[in-house]
Design a protein around this nucleic acid. Structure first.
Lengths: 136, 136
DNA sequence: TCCTAATGATACTATATAGGTATCATTTGT
DNA sequence: ACAAATGATACCTATATAGTATCATTAGGA
């Protein structure tokens, strides 16, 4: 059971690197070497982050990526949503089918509580706090 | 993101039915008709529950399944474990590979908190409490 | 101005997991 | 003996995850 998929994890690592960088623009090539993430995959991830408004990008020579807003305004939850959609732990596994217990599914209540807790925690973690935690 | 997979959900429904039954043994055929779960799949699920010690079974004519222990001693967490393994939300997605941040992964701490909460909640729910919640 | 280093868009491939089916062997009550 | 049940096990299919590849576009600098 995974709360975080691989692309989310890669994204967090890349974003931390970008947040800490002194450069104007950080390129995929640089990140690949620093983080050891396969370039093509990393490119896809960064492009998604750009489309979703977490990163700004510049094309052309000396181009690359940069945070679209301060690290303290980027939530872990935002990043997860880009790659995994809404956090919805309590979603009925039968959403697409008629579920005979829709109105009184006895599991729902408990799962919903867990979901709320998870949302609360994930919404409290910022990219800045993730970066601060790092120690060599 | 799913906390509960389909087989776990089916298992809960079947177990509730078995817990409430007045019969000595409950057969797959009966459960299939009552719950609308595909028979072959349901059989696989019940066999797993038997192997894991949650159900007892009897072969032959008039055979079937019955709870191996009282409903209040069967935890939702036990059922989840049968089909999904250990609840391990904070498991590093790179367990099988060398992860350069093993010792100080900044995500781990937060995920671990969420996992602990989930374990606590799921461990507090018994099959009996799930059955009691039902109302027609 | 042209070359090169970068991203944008997009299509494709491989592998694992979830969800489900099928079959034959074995057991047991009547 | 036979029918009704589970035990063991192998197989199939669709979807999601993880990753690759390619061509088009843009912009800085020699």
């Amino acid at each position: 059971m995974k709360l975080i998929t691989r692309d989310t994890d890669y994204a967090v690592r890349a974003l931390r690197e970008i947040a800490q960088s002194k450069e104007k623009m950080v390129s995929t090539v640089y990140l690949e070497e620093k983080l050891g993430i396969p370039r093509a995959f990393l490119r896809k991830i960064l492009q998604l982050l750009q489309k979703s408004g977490i990163l700004d990008s510049a094309k052309g020579n000396q181009g690359g990526f940069i945070l679209a807003r301060p690290a303290q305004d980027i939530l872990l939850l935002d990043i997860i949503k880009v790659f995994q959609g809404d956090v919805c732990v309590s979603e009925c596994v039968f959403l697409k089918e008629p579920c005979s217990q829709k109105s009184c599914c006895p599991l729902r209540g408990e799962l919903k509580k867990i979901e709320n807790y998870a949302l609360e925690r994930l919404g409290a973690v910022t990219l800045k706090s993730l970066s601060a935690n790092t120690r060599k």
